[in-house]
Amino acid sequence: MVRSMTAFARVERAGAHGTLSWELRSVNHRYLEPHLRLPDAFRELEGAVRDALRQGLSRGKVECTLRFAEENLRGSLQVDRERATQLVAAAEAVAALIERPAPLNPLEVLAWPGVLVADVADPQALNRDALSLFEQALDELKAGRAREGADLARLIDDRLDTIGAEVAALRELVPQMLAAHRHRIVERFRDMQAELDPQRLEQELVLLAQKSDVAEELDRLDTHVGEVRRVLKAGGAAGRRLDFLMQELNREANTLGSKAFDTRSTQAAVNLKVLIEQMREQVQNIE
């Protein structure tokens, strides 16, 4: 099954010390590009979260936001003395560069992120809960990408059916179009009251048949349609392969249009290009 790169997931879990929630948003991108927003107390999770994303996804820009709403348990507040000391030292170093600096306000130091911390029982337990909840969110994101991927595959498959019908109809029309063109040439000569050389006429028709021979292009279109179906059925990270096949389909449709000598073949080439472009837009969202 192919998967879309567009999805959203949100999970939440309440615990003894507060409520954890993850929001994951993914959109299409050439490569896997994670963007993490974690509270300072959960920074050590970054490596594990990135590893989980690499194992679960292959492409897409993924925004991962963790929020922690802490419960007011009336516990004691603690000062991270090491962080506060570093902050004061940095402030004094800057103050030395300024003439008559304002005195350092202790409340401003306490307001700095990570200086004032609640007395939580086990920060490591919170990290484990957050990582476990992230894995649940990632599973939901992957399920959403799979559902949308299935919808995209159905849309592409419908257009492949239409392309197959266009190609089959054009195969049947080619002999009729050549016969009609031969008739027009004969009529033109008659209207001009010119002497019609049967040998010269046959030579011209042979040249026309060679220039307008689209059997190879039609065969390639059928082959590419079959390959797109195979890739969709195989699933996995198929986006780049499908994008390449869209380029090949478009190349054959362009060649078909350049060889067109009848309004019906011209219209068929236009119809094919429209269908291929519609598929290409959908393929851009496939992982």
Rank of each mutant, 00 (worst) to 15 (best):
F8G: 04
R10M: 08
R13A: 08
R13V: 02
G15A: 11
G15L: 13
V27T: 09
H29N: 14
P34G: 06
L36M: 07
L36H: 02
L38V: 09
P39Q: 02
R43W: 11
L45A: 01
E46G: 03
S58R: 14
K61C: 06
E63P: 02
T65F: 11
S76Q: 15
Q78F: 11
V79Y: 13
R83Q: 06
A95V: 06
L97N: 07
L97E: 12
I98V: 15
E99I: 09
P101L: 07
P106K: 04
E108H: 11
L110P: 09
A111R: 15
G114D: 01
V115T: 03
L116M: 08
A118F: 02
R128S: 07
D129L: 09
A153G: 10
R154Y: 05
E166H: 10
V174D: 02
R188D: 09
D191E: 15
Q193S: 13
A194I: 12
P198W: 01
Q199A: 15
E204W: 04
V206R: 07
K211E: 14
V214I: 12
L218E: 05
D222L: 05
E227H: 12
G235P: 04
G239Y: 01
M246L: 08
M246R: 03
K259N: 05
K273N: 02
I286L: 09
